[in-house]
Amino acid sequence: MSGARSFIEKWRGLLGVGVASAVAYRGEFLVWILTTNLPLIMMALWTTVAAEGPVGRFGQRGFVAYFLGALLVRFLSGSWVVWQLTWDIREGGLGPRLLKPMHPFAYYAGENLAQIPLRLLVSVPLVLALVVGVGPAALGHDYRQWLLLPVLLLGAWLVLYTAMLVVASLALFVDSALAVWELWMAVGYVLSGYLMPFELLPAPLRRVAWWLPWRVTLALPLETLLGLCSVRESLAGLALQLVWVTVFGAAALALWRRGMRRFAAFGG
């Protein structure tokens, strides 16, 4: 019983600290928002294309809705734990973290979750732009998908977060873990539906990419939001998210455990 209480207390403290630090570093947060501008750049390209006639089922409005939605999903489910953790490992910030009565993975997760209020706040203008600017017709109409959306967003965050943990844990062994993450991003830009709607990928590539982890971190919640896929497809995506979270989560824990054995805190 007291175990449960101390668990709740720990997490309450953690979230409190997280919210405070999110507010303290709101400038950084804002810069992150501003640097996430690639969807807008892609929007300019694709709407210009669509001005001469629709591409697949996307007209100009369709592309505006798609890339606004992409921004929204990115803001709500993004994470930068891979930079934090590799930095902490290299610069010695990990030492004090290890002293806390909590697994570092949980610590960083708490920090991420504490940003939810701030993330919702920056999403408001995007939602307004979607509903008022593009029109409610651009959004999905099935209430079941609306219920699924928060779950899929959480899943998207978890897939991204655990994948980041795997890569960051590599930093315990090699210096260039961040380059691995860049590789993930470069591939992911194409395969997640970030640069163009996922369904516009050439069919053979799409069939493979459907199973890969990138689609479920962006295109899946996005297509659910815009009603571009069926409820069945959303559910299938959720199952795939679970698979990837399990794979990445297990890999991260295993790597971390091995890495901890050889980790000697800097300066120690």
Binding site: M42, L45, V49, V55, E182, A186, V187, Y189, V190, L195, M196, L200, L201, P202
Partner: peptide
């Protein structure tokens, strides 16, 4: 990165 910059053009 170069491939990922060219991919949208190629598909387009």
């Amino acid at each position: 990165w170069t491939l990922s910059a060219v991919a949208p053009l190629w598909i387009l």
